[in-house]
Amino acid sequence: MLQLDRISFSYGGGTLAIDGVTLRFEPGELVALTGPNGSGKSTLLKCAARVLVPQSGSIRLDDQESRQWLPKAYARAVGYLPQNPEPVVPIRAIDVVVSGRAPWLGRFSWESARDYEEAERALRLCDAAHLAERYLDEMSGGERKRIFLARVLAGEPRLILLDEPLTALDVAHVQQLAALLRQVVERTTATVIFSSHELNWSAAYADRMLVMNRGRVVMDGRPREVMTPEVMRDAFGFDAEAVTTAGRTWIVPRV
């Protein structure tokens, strides 16, 4: 459904943040985008979300150039969640979630009862229906992440791009949210691409793992192909051991 063809991007001259990346994504995939800090993960997601326009290469959604899509139509198909969306004024969770319906609204129209139903459905899917009337600034980090995920889901996108949805969460919440991403893929048949530094959790839940380094995709494969000491050393720069228990491979840093 999404096809990136030799795209390159740089922030105002200098080095390339994305350096000739070619990738293809199919419906119903849960894809983990990994790589060290500054390897281009966020930039790649922003290009795919049409927030940034690559200087060269082409991005095609459903075989149509992304630039040729109307912004709203593209936003209906692709739901993007930036790394740290911070509201500046206090806002209720339900208002955040229903704003995910924005791409479906006309210029002067207000959210209808149906939009609120979609928002509530998305909240239930994220196990956050009880938070609807609470204000965002009174919530924990994990609750907030679920609200923002619900907001993306409320827009009923077919492609979901999440920038580090697992960061700043404790272990229990990381597990909850990773499992939730799995559920989203299974229940909505959307494609989910999320960037993450949580290698083990990503490997446990994703169908496919990408490893980026200096703007290039250096690995693209199933989790067990990526979770090897060689990849960790070459792409991430740390010594690790691979430990296999109960049919799953875990990466353990060597100390």
Binding site: V51, K72, A75, R76, G79, P82, E86, G100
Partner: peptide, 14 residues
């Protein structure tokens, strides 16, 4: 939709 930042607004089709 600017309340969550420009990138977020852009991602919502603004």
């Amino acid at each position: 939709l600017f309340s969550f930042g420009e990138e977020d607004a852009s991602g919502r089709g603004v």
